[in-house]
Design a protein around this nucleic acid. Sequence first.
DNA 1: AATTCGGGGAT
DNA 2: ATCCCAGAATT
Length: 353
Amino acid sequence: MKYPYIREFSSTLVNWYYKEKRDLPWRHTTDPYKIWVSEVMLQQTRVDTVIPYYHRFINKYPTLESLAYAPQEELLKMWEGLGYYSRARNLQTGVREVVEKYNSKVPNNRHDITKLKGVGPYTAGAILSIAYNEPEHAVDGNVMRVLSRVLHIKEDIALPKTKKVFEEAVTQLIFKKDPGSFNQALMDLGAQICTPTSPKCLLCPVREYCLAFQEGKPEELPIKSKKQKNKKIKYDIYIAIDEDGKYLLQKRPSEGLLANMWEFPMIEIEKENILKSYEIFQKSYDLNITDFLNDQLLKFKHVFSHLTWEMDCHLVQVQKTSKLPKDSNFYSIDEITKLPMSVPMLRILNILK
DNA sequence: AATTCGGGGAT
DNA sequence: ATCCCAGAATT
């Protein structure tokens, strides 16, 4: 399609951004490493959530090298509560690649930077445009919403191939004097004005260039199809205390959900189970429950994006055993506090404190 | 192309 | 409850 107001749209948008942009921590630097950290944290995560994590993370790991040499458990602890923990592991992998293969210089072209672990099309474009002033697209959900309205694009944004349409659009629209500001302006507009529901069109600096506003129904765009189904899994959680008052913890596998994070032992409740869950627990950890201290310590749900855990927590006294399974051990509360744990496990830990 | 990965805030 | 957020990796 032809969109006749490219120059006016782009300069108007950027001028609005210069005047109205939010004062965010990562907007005080052009260090590609720090921009990288911020962009990874911001993946599927709100600005307000990221800000305190960003400060603490940069304070702890101010340089590529400091992150490259950090112990993974310490890194995960820094990421604790932020979610999508593979982002942290992939970021460290990517940072190590830069230190080793690129002499600690973050690549300044899409070909090389996209090869880095955890750096996809969006993050590549964000780093290149913001840190290196390169005219590269950075299309996220925000940008697709804004441009679906401005350009009246009715293709399903849930389909992977649709993103190309927006990437090509940005490539044509981008403000080449200041690509980083242009990309961030699109996102700021999406966050503050062109919101998912009830967009503030009367405050929009580019509404006279917006085809959806002219059509009268900007809130009906973008079009997005699929909704994911949410499976439920029930667990009995065993908070097991030994004779020394220490608690049994299990480290999760190195792949999959909450990889390498610690948790109180979880026994999935399945209908076809013949044994009671406490029997399975005793058998798996090769120990004996000597006392059921509290069979209704805490019962709650935790909702992930693609599944829900229903957790029933039991406090039990156990006899210490010398043959615990791999990656499990007894720890004091102080020791537990230093280990990375998921939010539902932190909730249990808080009850114990 | 579809699924898997967290968690929280807005509606 | 539902949506969606400065997405990427895996299948």
